[in-house]
């Protein structure tokens, strides 16, 4: 029997990739259940670091702030992203369009230190005029996060927008639906998967951002990544392992559900296609019938 070379190569690549990606995370999880304070020496299984986590007020506070900012950010970024995507796909060629596209792509690639510094200096400058901006708390972080998340939400929603058939919107309008009705009844359901994806993406990015937040945040607003970072800089600690394990667990569950819905959708589409195919068979019979009828008359 001949070995299927590409298939074998694919298997090796996939295994190596997964080992590379998951070995560090796996170790992290294993040692979170370690009794010892030493992160690298296994003594016995224990949940004590999880207990310590629950009682660490600094961590609980940081989680609260991070969640708040992430929710606010994702909602705003999705709205801005939807508007921007709509503008980019439907309203073609307006003045300053290329500048607009540049604004919308650049935050994705720009080094975070630059974005962070730029936004901080903006807040300081604006703070001289409007005192509101000097308070570098949740709102300032929210604005900063929205700015870089919008770039991503725009990309995600735009790619879905482009798949939409504009004539469906025109059809709705033709049947008497005004622009607002068209948006909520026709466009929104169609781009909903992308809206959800964009929301989740900006949520994770907002939860995860360290550098930009560090520039912006004042002393009172410490987010979760900032807390982890400062604690990691001080040295390894099993408490962080426990925290990391929780984060990984949450992300895995979400990923699993995302995968599940994706698979379900594909199955549904396959079923729809099968139904359509059956309908087509019936139609073909009708065509033959029609031919016979009209040919015999001719």
């Amino acid at each position: 029997m001949r070995v299927n070379k590409p298939a074998a190569a694919r298997l090796v690549i996939i295994i190596l990739t997964l080992v590379f990606l998951y070995l560090p995370i796996g170790t992290l999880i294993v040692y979170s259940f370690n009794e010892s304070k030493m992160v690298t020496v296994w003594t016995e299984a224990s949940l004590k670091w999880y207990g310590a986590l629950v009682h660490d007020k600094a961590i609980i506070d940081a989680v609260g702030i991070s969640l708040l900012i992430a929710v606010l950010t994702s909602c705003t970024a999705v709205v801005i992203g939807t508007l921007a995507a709509f503008v980019l796909v439907r309203v073609r060629s307006f003045k300053g369009e290329s500048a607009f596209v540049l604004f919308m792509t650049a935050p994705m690639v720009l080094p975070e230190v630059i974005t962070g510094l730029a936004l901080l200096l903006l807040f300081v400058t604006l703070g001289n005029v409007i005192p509101f901006f000097s308070d570098r708390g949740v709102i300032a972080i929210w604005i900063a996060h929205v700015t870089f998340c919008s770039a991503y939400t725009t990309v995600v929603i735009r790619s879905r927008f482009r798949e939409l058939d504009i004539s469906i919107e025109e059809a709705a309008m033709d049947l008497g639906a005004g622009p607002i009705k068209v948006f909520f009844a026709i466009i929104l359901p169609a781009i909903m998967p992308a809206e959800v994806a964009a929301f989740l993406l900006s949520f994770t990015m907002s939860m995860d951002d360290l550098v930009i937040t560090s520039f912006i945040a004042g002393p009172d607003s410490t987010t979760l990544p900032m807390l982890i970072f400062s604690s990691v800089r001080r040295g390894l600690s099993p408490e962080i392992n426990a925290l990391a394990t929780i984060i990984v667990a949450i992300v895995s569950v979400c990923t699993f559900f995302a995968w599940l819905s994706m698979t379900r959708k594909q199955k549904r589409m396959a079923a729809d296609r099968a139904k359509a195919a059956r309908a087509m068979l019936i139609e073909e019979k009708a065509v033959i019938e029609h031919r016979r009828l009209y040919k015999s008359k001719a």
């Binding site: 004539s167 059809a171 033709d174 049947l175 005004g178």
Partner: peptide, 29 residues
């Protein structure tokens, strides 16, 4: 505006609303 004109159009691609059933599609207008 198009949504106030007493004319209706059948589109080349048919432009049926993908998230609605046949009945909902017909009832939309």
């Amino acid at each position: 505006p198009p949504y106030k004109r007493p004319v209706n159009m059948m589109f080349q691609s048919y432009a049926l609303f993908p998230y609605m059933t046949v009945k909902q599609n017909i009832a939309f207008g």
